[in-house]
Design a protein around this nucleic acid. Structure first.
Lengths: 233, 233
DNA sequence: TTGTAAGTTTTACATCGTAAGGTGCCATCG
DNA sequence: CGATGGCACCTTACGATGTAAAACTTACAA
């Protein structure tokens, strides 16, 4: 009588830009960016594809919104950190921020790819860099040096690992014996490097590059370099 | 009589994987990655879309081929450089290589986005890193430190600028007066930075960040940092 | 009751990647 | 010589995608 042919279907929450963006993030988390289509997104909200267009201009704008959303998530985390940043402390404070940002990004591995395809920077990115800039100014940076510093950090400032190939790009599988042979011919130095690493640490066939370690190593090189320029005055 | 209904149409070169990849690069150069579709690619070769599949397994494999092709172009340029790399000279040699790689990438602005979406690394990338590794070994790096160094350089090693947003991301247009007002409230430090820069160099409304300068600045920070670790022994 | 606006759905279309199968050509072999 | 078979290319067709256009639904004001 009360409509609804199926078994007591729920009234269903109304859509909203907020809900759409949240669902989009979830979809991407589960299946990557390619699985984020308007139809699937709508389905995950129990609606039709075209309904989304009432809350979002088009897919590009949806993606812009998702990018904004993710960076905002970083800002939320980062804003909860409160460390002294005067003088030499700027470095510890910046390091902490950036590592916190990276933690968020690890939950959204598709975010770098998304951010890179945005033509216009999310406002949240400006906010993030403004905060980082504050730390550097507290540390005694001139605006000019700080400016170069932000460029030098680049996307690493937001926690991007900026490796060329993410997972298991070396030592992927199969018998490494024959592969090493082949490799030694084409890439003698890479082969030499691999052999030494295997020698030093035999149980390192898979994922022998620790992403976290490498990220921190690279980050510290940049931060240390900037700090040196800062204190040189 | 000799077939060909239209005005003396040419016999047309036969397709080949090589020709297909070259055409794909050209298409991307002209209209970006999104304009690279199988149909348009075929059309640019005066053929039908499905004909491409005789030379290329599918679009993913085509993109892999294009990626390989571009990195190979980098390798070609880089191989022509021959600088001493013993001892402290490694840095100059590496710098030169990386700047040469960047020059190639500037002609293919879509390449970073493409490389980032590859799941498997082009062989040419291994070759490139092998060459870089050689320089570092000549310079006296341990394999271990060189390994960290390659990670620290990351995609920058291939000339990626790894800025978050490529062109005109600040100071884009319109009257900057009202914008500054608004900005000063939300992003006081960014606003301060901009104001100082405008003050120092008034004719810098557009593109006041010199990509080349910033790239070299960031690169030198990393190279100097690595060199320091190298000579610390 | 009637109108009006907000929110959602239906229908439809152009464009994309590509599966399946067909066509023309040439070299080889009986 | 004609038959055979493989290579290179084309035709047709299908499902997925983003989205324009217009119809429907609900809630509320006049």
């Amino acid at each position: 009588m009360t409509a609804e042919t199926e078994t007591g279907a729920q009234p269903r929450l109304p859509l909203s830009r907020e809900r759409v963006l949240r669902a989009a993030v979830s979809l991407a988390d589960e299946g990557g960016l390619k699985s984020l289509t308007m139809r699937r997104l709508a389905e995950s909200l129990d609606a039709e594809a075209m309904s989304l267009y009432y809350h979002v201009a088009n897919k590009e704008e949806l993606l812009d919104g998702v990018a904004e959303f993710v960076v905002q998530e970083i800002n939320d985390v980062v804003d909860r950190i409160d460390l002294p940043s005067a003088g030499a402390d700027w470095k510890k404070a910046a390091r902490q921020r950036i590592l916190a940002a990276r933690e968020v990004l690890l939950r959204h591995p598709w975010a770098p790819e998304l951010l890179q395809t945005r033509t216009t920077a999310p406002v949240a990115v400006a906010k993030y860099f403004d905060g980082l800039l504050r730390l550097m100014r507290d540390g005694g940076f001139s605006y000019d040096l700080a400016h170069h510093g932000l460029h030098a950090l680049g996307s690493r400032a937001l926690g991007f690992s900026q490796e060329l190939f993410n997972p298991g790009d070396d030592a992927n599988s199969d018998d490494s014996a024959a592969m090493m042979e082949n490799m030694a011919g084409q890439f003698p130095y890479l082969a030499g490097m691999l052999m030494e690493i295997v020698h030093d640490d035999p149980d390192s066939t898979l994922g022998w590059c620790d992403d976290q370690t490498e990220f921190e190593f690279g980050l510290d090189i940049v931060l240390d370099g900037l700090d040196r320029l800062r204190s040189e005055r």
